[in-house]
Nucleic acid binder design. Sequence first.
DNA 1: TTTT
DNA 2: TTTT
Lengths: 176, 176, 176, 176
Amino acid sequence: MLNRVILIGRLTRDPELRYTPAGVAVTQFTIAVDRPFTSGQGEREADFIPVVTWRQLAETCANYLRKGRLTAVEGRIQVRNYENNEGKRVYVTEVIADNVRFLESNREGGAPQESGGYAGGNNNSGGGSFGGGGNAPYGGGNGGGGKPSTPRNNNSRDPFSDDGRPIDISEDDLPF
Amino acid sequence: MLNRVILIGRLTRDPELRYTPAGVAVTQFTIAVDRPFTSGQGEREADFIPVVTWRQLAETCANYLRKGRLTAVEGRIQVRNYENNEGKRVYVTEVIADNVRFLESNREGGAPQESGGYAGGNNNSGGGSFGGGGNAPYGGGNGGGGKPSTPRNNNSRDPFSDDGRPIDISEDDLPF
Amino acid sequence: MLNRVILIGRLTRDPELRYTPAGVAVTQFTIAVDRPFTSGQGEREADFIPVVTWRQLAETCANYLRKGRLTAVEGRIQVRNYENNEGKRVYVTEVIADNVRFLESNREGGAPQESGGYAGGNNNSGGGSFGGGGNAPYGGGNGGGGKPSTPRNNNSRDPFSDDGRPIDISEDDLPF
Amino acid sequence: MLNRVILIGRLTRDPELRYTPAGVAVTQFTIAVDRPFTSGQGEREADFIPVVTWRQLAETCANYLRKGRLTAVEGRIQVRNYENNEGKRVYVTEVIADNVRFLESNREGGAPQESGGYAGGNNNSGGGSFGGGGNAPYGGGNGGGGKPSTPRNNNSRDPFSDDGRPIDISEDDLPF
DNA sequence: TTTT
DNA sequence: TTTT
């Protein structure tokens, strides 16, 4: 009935933007969050947590996030599952983000920007001028076939494992 | 850039539903949250935290919440201020909730409901069937004059202190 | 650098209490959290999220939680991994809880308890009378051999898959 | 029964470190958190939220935080009250932090530090090497008189308004 | 494999 | 002014 996650950490790689067959933007990245204690061997460890964003927020993340950037993520834990090649059920846990904050700005650029960056979530419904969800530039061509079945029902592959082409996710997977 | 609060506690009184001059529903209540430790004198204390909800969620809370009910609240801290009768600036801290969960159902009723109750937040924008924001039965007499200035600018009274009539809040105060 | 999760949901089964070879209590359960929207097919879905608690909190959860109970969990996301029988690396995502609240009391019992239940976290260091960590009745036979290597390094089995006997976790895995 | 707050924002001023009559360190600062929407007049507003830290964390914050720094704060909402000069009860809402993250390092310094900074919370009880609570350098002699009564009972002044000398807080106010 |  |  309530499912809330807040993370602050650094991207392990550049984010990956794809589109569902119906043209909905979805961006994935992994955030490394240092643990607040050291291991038995005195080493500092981290958790590597996969994050997924949809629509407008996906586009913004793909545009502004880069490997190594300090980032805050707010969202919910989602556990989906699919059947792999050997017919075994695989469970995938991800954070579906609805709010992402860029805590470090472009550093390659010249000017000493203060910090900041800003990616509104999807959590507005009223008349606010904040972000927006429906008017995203979902980009276009995505026609191609593909198996439009939803991954959490009867998929036989990780919908995210198929790089390069429109991903194997139907609109049914759209959160919010 | 990020402001998130989650509380679980009990209502100290029945919630109060009012309408802004423009007819927007707003409900207030206070939630008592026990502290996770005892005081120096060995007494268990609590924090009494004011909560505000708007629009559809306000109507739902007014309908289903009652004094004493165990309730989960998700939202953000807001600090507004106004000038009181003596010309002094008064600061008011409230949690603006966008998600409220009813952890206990009606007990006075007959049937032994399991638990539950459900109040969707405002954080949906997509095509989900979840809650809703825009279609609230705002209705209600709300014509009346009143000072339509916004409380956080130049109000001379607590906009919530004026019981009975449409409250002294302009649309400018609408969050989200 | 920050990793915080708050969940409210229901246990899918009774919790399972075990002990590490060194005698440290660890309890696992899964919490079902309904999603705040319906699927494309109009069905209400849920995420099934594994939770782990340690030491005193583990004992308390094992004593008071039962299948179906509404429960609030506060903790952090942890991603550990191990090598399975076929030599493949498997990733396991769990919420390591440091605070658990029992939102429903025993129902099978007779008296109509209001609600409540209480499981303090580990997050006290001062002089509070709150919970406690060090004085847990770890007891239990736990001498036995077993592979004392840590699961996130070089384990070949899921340390939690071996029911019945002291589990395959070394003290290195102790959080906090 | 649960009270959790997470904020990311910037310090409005340098933090203020004081000591209770018994020598316990307490640091206060205010964090400005931009609202995720613009006001009716199209202006971007912020909430100014008072934060309090105790003991070791107080010392670390006083040492490393400065006006303008981007900072993450994790804690709980506390509402205390006292009687002011005119015999009126005044309510003060603060976030009692148990975890503070420095998202920006010293900029005045020379070297272009990546970011970072680190302030462990109090929420460790195990054998971790994380932060610590009990062994804080509470600083020393501060014996001096002062009214040792607790502010939330019968104080006649804001315990935090009396700058310069050991503050008007007894050990009873120690959280955790 | 899942809870209400 | 406060809830269980």
